[in-house]
Write a protein that binds this DNA or RNA. Structure first.
Lengths: 249, 249
DNA sequence: CGCTGTTTTGATAATATTCAATCTACGTGG
DNA sequence: CCACGTAGATTGAATATTATCAAAACAGCG
């Protein structure tokens, strides 16, 4: 049973929660936060563990507090496409739906702030601010999915890699409440295979393109899980997007 | 000015509206429908006309009553990816957002049931059933976008074509409140170029694959805008999906 | 220190794109 | 009503990009 309450990993109180301002509860008032706080519980999953399989029953919804998870879809013959990358503050699960539509996997150690599905649906119905924030987040996710469709449908391998790195830069900056710029250091939680699944490429192609970008000085890998981007603007340049593109989550 | 009220094209009354049961207003009660009816207005656009350009101000939201529209995104160098296909009952526009994120184009003559954005936001806030239905529809759209990502990221040209045709079969059936099966006749409102933009292919590749499917007897084109699918199950078979895949809108 | 899983690199093959030339259907005007 | 013009569709040949198969290098860990 991988599920444990882990108060030491997440905050005991929502007051000190680092992701509150971006999460589904962001717009709730004090009274509403009390009700959420009473219903919430934490779950942790070690890196590599599957949270739920597509088709399985999923009786909870939740928010990523720390760590990274992926949503993936797989064809019978094994071809896999990532369809969602869940970073801290992202929401997972769908109200009213019992069967999980996608496989959710923890790619790093993961802490989720969870609610049982039924009580959460009740809270949604009783708390317009919660429902409205969930709609807003879902619309943002839809925008992100559509940006991703442009990457998958029309960009070259090189542009796809640059796009992914630029997205990670933006998310990193957003968490610090900043805008990305100049020299940046980003955490890269994904293996080459996970990157390939994200970008609709093979892991060999990802590896080759990463090598090419490194040799051109566009990225500077620091060990296995971290990368320095010497010039964010240059990365965006080769990603194919115009600079004034949508923030994409 | 392409915009005209067109009561003759849509129903005068919501009572007789053919798409009510699938639209954003589907779960509203009689009182709520009265308020919606008072605020609504129809707009029509001829085939080929741009409804709004990405980046333009968009002061309304709406529902497709009849016809087909597309959402597209374009890179500077002209590469275009369709990111949404709006069929009758689909919703367009985003509450709280003024700038359109995508270019919306009428691909056939189009009738929209519209609301000015501000009043609609007020209705959303005052009508939980409306907000809840919009959330549900947005989550469905997100599912569709993710299915589409699998198509764009991992499927061959042949599988992509079959997937698109299967999706159109499902939508056609859904409008009739049926499930797709056996021999079906579907309306194909898209040009080869629009299909290519949907599928992340070139129009030549689309044409070649359509020819191949025709020669194999999997499809039977009837003129330019209609296709007979002799065996829906066979189409799903070569689309790469397993039969029990999500309904995808 | 030697495993094991990940990543890189190489050679070859498959698939879709590009560029170019017809061909076809459909609406327009004679 | 039919010929014509045009936009859309098809087909062909050459090319480019990415996938596939295979092997070697590397990193982390017991």
């Amino acid at each position: 049973m991988p599920v444990t309450t882990a108060p030491q990993s997440g905050p005991l109180s929502c007051d000190s929660c680092r992701i509150h301002n971006r999460a589904v509860c962001a717009h709730c008032n004090a009274d509403e936060m009390v009700r959420l706080e009473q219903a919430k519980f934490y779950r942790t999953f070690p890196a590599g563990q599957v949270v739920v399989c597509a088709g399985d029953e999923m009786d909870f919804v939740g928010t990523v507090v720390t760590g990274v998870a992926t949503l993936t879809q797989t064809l019978e013959d094994g071809r896999t496409q990532m369809v969602g990358l869940l970073l801290p503050s992202d929401f997972l699960g769908r109200p009213r739906r019992i069967e999980a539509a996608y496989t959710i996997t923890a790619v790093t150690d993961l802490v989720l702030c969870c609610f049982r599905r039924k009580p959460f649906e009740k809270l949604l119905a009783d708390t317009p601010r919660l429902a409205s924030r969930l709609l807003e987040m879902t619309l943002d996710e839809l925008d992100a999915a559509r940006e991703w469709m442009l990457i998958l449908g029309r960009k070259s391998a090189r542009e796809r890699i640059a796009s992914l790195l630029a997205i990670l830069c933006r998310r990193e900056a957003a968490l610090m409440r900043e805008t990305p710029s100049g020299r940046m250091s980003i955490h890269l939680p994904l293996t080459r295979e996970a990157m390939a699944d994200y970008l609709g490429l093979t892991l060999e192609t990802v590896s080759r393109q990463m090598t090419a970008l490194r040799k051109e000085g566009l990225i500077d890998p620091q060990g296995r899980r971290s990368i320095i981007v010497p010039d964010y603007a240059q990365l965006v340049e080769i990603s194919g997007d115009d600079m004034d593109g949508a923030p994409l989550v």
